[in-house]
Simulated assay, not measured.
Amino acid sequence: MGKIKLNNIRVHARHGCLKEESIIGSDYRVDLEVSADLATPSVSDNLSDTVDYVHLNNIVKEEMAIKSKLLEHVAKRILNRIFSEIESITIAEVSVSKINPPIGGDVESVSVIISSNK
């Protein structure tokens, strides 16, 4: 078993409950960690034997491009796609963070973290 992490995937997206958020958008950070059996690729050195992190990054970018009111909804969609498209992943955790959220205070970010087993 092993883990693959994608850290600080930065995207601009239009999530939120406020009308302005869906028009102007905000900056987001997504962190992703997945677990899979990495024994074979550690020996074979073949991309086809492992979890392709380019694929993971594309899932994150595509799901972040779909408007949602809640970060929880976006995070769950990302997890669902990961499990449906990449069979070898057994556990995944995704953190979706809104940078400078419009909550009436000096807050760097707000994050939702969801993890799931296959």
Rank of each mutant, 00 (worst) to 15 (best):
G16S: 03
L18R: 13
L18Y: 14
L18D: 09
K19V: 07
K19R: 10
K19Q: 08
K19E: 15
E20H: 11
E20I: 11
E21M: 02
E21D: 06
E21C: 01
S22K: 14
S22T: 12
S22E: 09
S22D: 02
I23C: 08
I23D: 10
I24K: 10
S26T: 03
D27K: 11
Y28V: 00
R29D: 06
V30A: 00
V30W: 01
V30Y: 00
D31A: 07
D31M: 05
D31Q: 04
L32H: 07
E33Q: 15
E33G: 06
E33N: 12
E33D: 13
V34Q: 07
S35N: 12
A36M: 11
D37M: 02
D37S: 10
D37A: 04
L38M: 13
L38T: 10
A39S: 14
A39R: 13
A39D: 12
T40G: 08
P41I: 00
P41T: 01
P41N: 01
P41F: 03
S42I: 03
V43M: 10
D45L: 01
D45Q: 04
D45G: 04
N46Q: 14
N46C: 10
L47M: 08
L47K: 03
S48C: 10
S48A: 14
S48D: 14
S48M: 09
D49K: 03
D49Q: 02
V51K: 06
V51I: 10
V51R: 08
D52A: 06
D52G: 05
D52E: 04
Y53M: 05
Y53N: 00
Y53S: 02
Y53R: 01
V54Q: 11
H55Q: 13
H55V: 13
L56A: 02
L56D: 05
N57L: 05
N57V: 00
N57A: 11
N57P: 00
N58E: 15
I59F: 13
I59W: 11
V60R: 03
V60L: 07
V60A: 04
K61P: 02
K61F: 02
K61C: 10
E62G: 09
E62P: 06
E62V: 10
E63K: 15
E63T: 07
E63A: 09
M64A: 07
M64I: 09
A65M: 03
A65L: 01
I66C: 06
K67E: 09
K67T: 06
S68M: 06
K69G: 08
K69Q: 13
K69S: 09
K69E: 11
L70V: 05
L70H: 06
L71E: 04
L71P: 04
L71H: 05
L71T: 05
E72A: 03
E72H: 01
E72L: 00
H73K: 12
H73A: 12
V74G: 05
V74H: 08
V74T: 15
V74C: 14
A75T: 07
A75L: 01
A75P: 02
K76T: 13
K76F: 13
K76S: 14
R77D: 14
I78V: 13
I78P: 04
L79M: 02
N80T: 14
N80Y: 12
N80P: 04
I82E: 08
I82Q: 10
I82V: 15
